[in-house]
Design a protein around this nucleic acid. Structure first.
Length: 411
DNA sequence: ATGTCC
């Protein structure tokens, strides 16, 4: 059994955003304290989904005055979530499941030259897909409508030209997924409207990252600590990996939109894309600092952000409060309650196999990996409500609308 | 989280 958190162990410039009713693992808080104590760290914020990683906790943001620490981003650079809002009201569950399976088998880039795919995506991100020869027209239109990726130019691509384009449009393992969800009762109708969300309509949610490419980036920069101009090559390569990850999510969303019959522009009413693992230069305490987000969603300006639930609990679209006290970030999800091996044992004992592919809220699950089906069961996750309330009470974001999972695809 | 290897 995991030990509970002791927040007294934290230094003054570190903070936990979690109500008393949110379970936090002691080891995760120790890791937060350890990173906060690194030279140059001026602020550290642990979110209510904080959990222990390999030395670096996940579900946190760290501000460093004068240096970039690649280890804090880790091997899943650019991981994040894309939301696409549609005007589709309903679809028969059997048909949706069948068409989703089909969409996962079809390769939308089959007609494209793999080298051209890599180059366009590295330099131009999701928008680069629109410029490819052989890309389906509906995907090209979707990609062309993308906002320009971050202004930072991509760095040297040469260490990453190794066949990673084959991973584009793939979900991956762990907590990554591709989902159809239904918009629930609106909490902030004006904000929902601005984002193109209407109660009862379907949305697509893609949570995935840069796959093996991010792993290569993490390996290459290992334990480096980068000050001044020395950070530029890493930041350029990180920008390329983030563009790759965004394009991956666009392709995933396209696949599911096609399954929904919603890939026409007129049925797409809005959307957003958020990166959970990234570094940005932002104002902290009146000075510019390098804000490292590690499993944390940006919540800047009055933009929208998303906190992922589990496949058995709603995700929440929220409106950012631009709160510097939370390093302009929010939790990226509900956070795990059980470790993976613990989940495999307990959940296998609790349910029959056929029960595992249905959820309490009436959703379906498509997952061909029996271990992953257990590891990612909703019972392995914390309840989402105290997580959302923690963010609201801390003044980081306000609720806009819940997204209730209808069909979740893994791997 | 990952690809790869046991």
């Amino acid at each position: 059994m995991k030990a509970p958190a002791d927040s007294a162990a934290l230094p003054a410039h570190a903070r936990l955003v979690a109500r008393d009713d949110v379970w936090l693992e002691g080891n995760a808080v120790q890791q937060l304290a350890r990173v906060a104590a690194l030279p140059g760290c001026v602020r550290a914020v642990g979110m209510p989904d904080l959990h222990a990683g390999r030395g670096i906790p996940i579900g946190a943001a760290f501000a460093f005055a004068d240096r970039v620490v690649p280890e804090l981003i880790g091997g899943d650079a650019g991981c994040g979530v894309r939301l696409v809002a549609t005007s589709i009201g309903r679809m028969a569950p059997d048909a949706l499941e069948r068409r989703a399976r089909q969409a996962m088998d079809d390769d939308p880039l089959a007609e494209c030259d793999p080298r051209a795919v890599f180059e366009r995506v590295w330099e131009r991100g999701a928008r680069g897909l629109a410029e490819l020869d052989g890309v389906p027209e509906a995907l090209a239109r979707l990609a062309a409508a993308e906002l320009e990726d971050s202004l930072r130019p991509s760095g040297d691509a040469s260490p990453y030209r190794a066949g990673y384009e084959g991973a584009l449009g793939s979900v991956g393992g762990g907590n990554h997924f591709l989902e159809v969800a239904r918009v629930g009762a609106l909490r902030d109708p004006a904000s929902a409207k601005a984002l193109g969300l209407s109660a009862g309509e379907l949305v697509v949610v893609a949570h995935s990252g840069s796959r093996g490419l991010g792993g290569a980036l993490g390996q290459r920069w290992g334990g480096a600590v980068l000050e001044g101009d020395a950070a530029e090559p890493y930041l350029g390569e990180l920008a390329g990996a983030c563009r790759f990850a965004r394009a991956n999510r666009l392709l995933l969303a396209y696949r599911m939109l096609r399954a929904l019959g919603a890939s026409r522009a007129s049925t797409i009413t809005g959307g957003l894309d958020l990166t959970h693992n990234d570094v940005a230069r932002e104002a902290v305490g009146g000075e510019l600092a390098w804000v490292h987000r590690k499993g944390a969603a940006p919540a800047r300006g009055s933009d929208f952000t998303v906190v992922l639930g589990s496949r058995g609990a709603p995700s929440w679209v929220m409106r950012s409060c631009d709160a510097e006290a939370g390093l302009r970030s929010v939790a990226h999800g509900a956070g795990r309650k059980m470790g993976r091996s613990e989940a495999r044992e307990k959940i296998a004992a609790r349910y029959r196999r056929r029960e595992l592919v249905r959820t309490e809220l009436g959703g379906r699950v498509v997952c061909d990996d029996p271990a992953l089906l257990l590891e990612e069961h909703p019972d392995a996750y914390k309840p989402i409500e105290p997580v959302i309330e923690s963010l609201v009470e801390a003044g980081l974001a306000t609720p806009v609308a819940p997204l209730v999972p209808v069909l979740t695809v893994k791997r």
